[in-house]
Simulated scan of single mutants.
Amino acid sequence: MKLSLEYKIREPKVILNKNPLLLLLHGYGSNEADLFSFAPELPAEYFVISARAPYDLQYGSYAWYAINFDADQNKFSDNDQARISRDLISNFIDELVANYPIDANDVNLLGFSQGSILSYAVALSYPEKINKVIAMSGYVNLDIITDDYLKNNLSKLKVFASHGTVDQVIPIEWARKTPGILEKLGIAITYKEYPVGHGVAPQNFYDLKNWLSPLTPEGETKTE
């Protein structure tokens, strides 16, 4: 099915009347196959869809927005491109809900690095579309959120944020500001750190899976 973004899909193994969606958003210089490697391990009731970012960096690498360097090697983000990608993702969610039997009230985002930054931006800009956010190795960039986001009802959002303590790409200090920002907005957040660099530790993956679908004491996935 041709939609506005290229994507990979794992259909739910447990078919409900309408199934929840977990939309995966990769990091800078990666592609839709990267996070999709998690798909076999993710809860069976979800549509797992991994989207490809729109900006082609060549050789199978893509970005949600450009990262530029000035003469002093200071790094800065192209916020205009980031805002365009924010709205592309929002529209892509609408397309997915229109084309698959997805529960529009149970749309969830899982982002890594740049994909995590975009996940926050989409959720805060369009909270009526998003249920949960899993944000790994990212941070909240308030400059790419819609201007009137403080008028939004953010009370439904739930966030699982994680970061490596020795992340050499996005400083841990940036991530540590996130809980305070979100709590001030009344958003429930679980924040965890792991002794790794810019990547996903096995314990991190276990924790996010458990947060997404809590386990019973016997180790079985809880069903409502």
Rank of each mutant, 00 (worst) to 15 (best):
P101C: 14
D103C: 04
N105Y: 13
N105K: 15
L109K: 06
L110V: 07
F112D: 06
G115R: 07
S116M: 03
Y120K: 04
V122G: 09
A123V: 03
A123N: 03
L124N: 01
K129V: 06
K132C: 09
A135R: 06
A135K: 11
G138P: 07
V140W: 00
N141K: 11
L142W: 00
D143N: 15
D143L: 06
I145V: 15
D147V: 15
D148G: 14
Y149S: 12
L150F: 08
N152W: 10
S155E: 11
K156I: 14
K158V: 10
K158C: 09
V159Y: 02
G164E: 01
V166Y: 00
V169W: 00
I170W: 00
I170L: 12
I170E: 00
E173R: 09
K177D: 09
K177V: 04
P179R: 13
G180M: 10
G180T: 13
L182V: 11
G186W: 07
A188C: 08
A188R: 11
I189E: 02
Y191F: 14
K192C: 05
Y194G: 10
G197C: 04
H198I: 07
V200G: 03
D207M: 04
W211Q: 08
W211C: 13
L212A: 12
G219S: 05
K222N: 10
